[in-house]
Each structure stands twice: as C-alpha cells, then as structure tokens.
C-alpha cells in the first residue's frame, strides 16, 4: 500500500557516496539546493544534471529507484508548470482565444519543473545513501555551534532520529490495521466524504493508541539505560573526515565553478 514512499528511505550500500561523511553530504546538499536556485540558463542545468547522474551512478543505487521518489510530487509539478506556462507575461508565442502562451512562460515552466525535480533528487540521494543515525549525527554536529545561544542541538537531533526511525514502523502498523479492518468488512472506498471520514476511525484510533504505547515504552526503555540528554555524552562512532571527503569537496567546488561559469556565459551568449 505504501510501496511508493521512498522519501527519507535509506538504501544500504558501501559505495563512495555511502561512505562520505554525513556532514559533507549535508553541506553538499545545501550547496546543491542553493545552486539550483541560482542557475539562470539551460547550460547550468545541464551541468547540474551531469553532476546528479554521476552521483547516482557512483552510489550504485538503481536509477529506477531514485526516480520513484519523483512520483509523489508529480501532481504538484504539473500544477506549478501549468500556472507558470499560462500566467507569465512576455513575448507571445501562441494565442488561442483566451489562452496565451509566452516565450518567458515556457521557459519559466521548464525551469520550475527542473528545479523541483533536482530538489527532490538531490535530497533523495542524501537520504538514500545516509543511514538515519549518520544523518542525525551530522545534523547534531553542524548545529552544535548554536548550542551556545541555547539551541538544544542534541535533543533536536535525537527527536529527528526517533521520528525517522518510526516512520516505517508506523507505516507498517497502518498497513496491518487496514488489513485487519478490511477483513472485518470495513469499507474505505465508497460513500460520500463524511462516510469516508468516518471509515477512518477504525484505523486512526488503533494507530494513535499504538503510537502512544510505543512512545511510552521507548521512554521507559531509554530511562532504564540511564539516558538523560546531551550533556557529557560520548559517541561510539566519532565522525571523521576521510580522504574521500576531500575528493567530494573537490567535486563540489568544480560543480559550483562550472555553474558560475555557465551563469557568466549566459550573460554573454544567452542559451
């Protein structure tokens, strides 16, 4: 039932990208996202696409699997594209009764689609190649300078770890409850909106109850192991930058350089 949700899923492996330090990957994604919005030309997107393809290839994750992450946002992408296509002023390309399509509209629509795709692809590569634990470790480390101004970095990271950890569990549980209630003849598909909302009750109540029970159990289990927050905690696995990370940063600098070049070129030759 929830087979299509790949967002936030981890795809275990030992590739170059998998072995990069999570801090490198998080910062890389931030730079990647920033550059998505700075690119002004198709040439720039070509550079970005090449970089993305290289990343996916070296991560050894099947392309099909990465692209599956795009499915849930398809409707959103289409709506955005349509809005941009029809509602942008500029040089008129086609005019048909009340519909006008402008050159700028086409360009902007394509740009928006590309931006959304790259946004999802970039973040998917991060979550697919980084285990949730490594991810939150990285975030905690990157947030730790903010501890001085009172940001509870460790607690935030712990909350994120737990939330990520329980996404699949809750999905599985929902699946099980839906099956059990379907077997008892519950009907989720027919009827008007109110009936359908009512049909959710037999799913939501057991789900909430089990979520609360799990939270309770987890809290007790953590206390039993003397967990008491971030002060003075040491780690089993310290984060360490390795040789691979140097190469990663080098690749990233190249990417940014090429994009800047593409933008400069755009000012001159306009493609």
């Amino acid at each position: 039932m929830f087979k299509d949700i790949t967002l936030g899923q981890y795809f275990p492996g030992h590739s170059f990208i998998h072995r990069l330090d999570p801090r490198t990957k998080i910062l890389a994604v931030i730079i990647y996202i920033t550059s998505i919005f700075c690119i002004k030309s198709f040439l720039g997107y070509a550079v970005l696409a090449a970089f993305t393809v290289l990343c996916v290839l070296s991560s050894k994750i099947p392309f099909k699997f990465v692209l599956k992450g795009l499915k849930p946002i398809m409707i959103f992408v289409i709506i955005t594209a349509i809005f941009n296509l029809f509602l942008t002023d500029g040089k008129i390309l086609v005019r048909w009764s009340f519909i006008t399509i402008t050159y700028e509209g086409v360009r902007l629509a394509i740009f928006m689609v590309l931006r959304l795709f790259f946004l999802v692809l970039g973040t998917s590569i991060l979550t697919l190649t980084t285990s949730p634990i490594a991810l939150t470790d990285g975030i905690e480390y990157l947030l730790s300078p903010l501890k001085k101004v009172g940001v509870p970095a460790h607690e935030l990271a712990m909350m994120m770890t737990i939330a990520l950890r329980f996404v699949p569990t809750l999905l599985e549980e929902t699946d099980k409850i839906i099956k059990a209630q379907t077997a008892r003849g519950a009907d989720f598909e027919s009827g008007n909106l109110i009936n359908r909302a009512k049909a959710m009750i037999p799913i939501l109540i057991p789900l909430f109850i089990s979520a609360f029970r799990r939270a309770d159990d987890l809290a007790v289990a953590m206390e039993c192991r003397c967990y008491r927050g971030g002060e003075n905690r040491t780690r089993l696995r310290e984060l360490k930058m390795k040789k691979g990370d140097v190469f990663g940063w080098f690749a990233l600098v190249c990417l940014v350089g090429l994009i800047v070049l593409a933008n400069v070129a755009y000012g001159r030759i306009n493609i």
């Binding site: 099956k179 059990a180 003849g185 057991p206």
Partner: peptide, 17 residues
C-alpha cells in the same frame, strides 16, 4: 467474498477501537 471469509490476523489485539 470478505464477508464469506473471516480472518483473525496474528496478534489481532491492535484492531480494537
């Protein structure tokens, strides 16, 4: 068909609501 078949799932306690 589902009305003709009754399934008690493994650990069915969670289905109570």
């Amino acid at each position: 068909i589902r009305f003709k078949t009754g399934l008690v799932m493994q650990y069915p306690e969670y289905q109570l609501f």
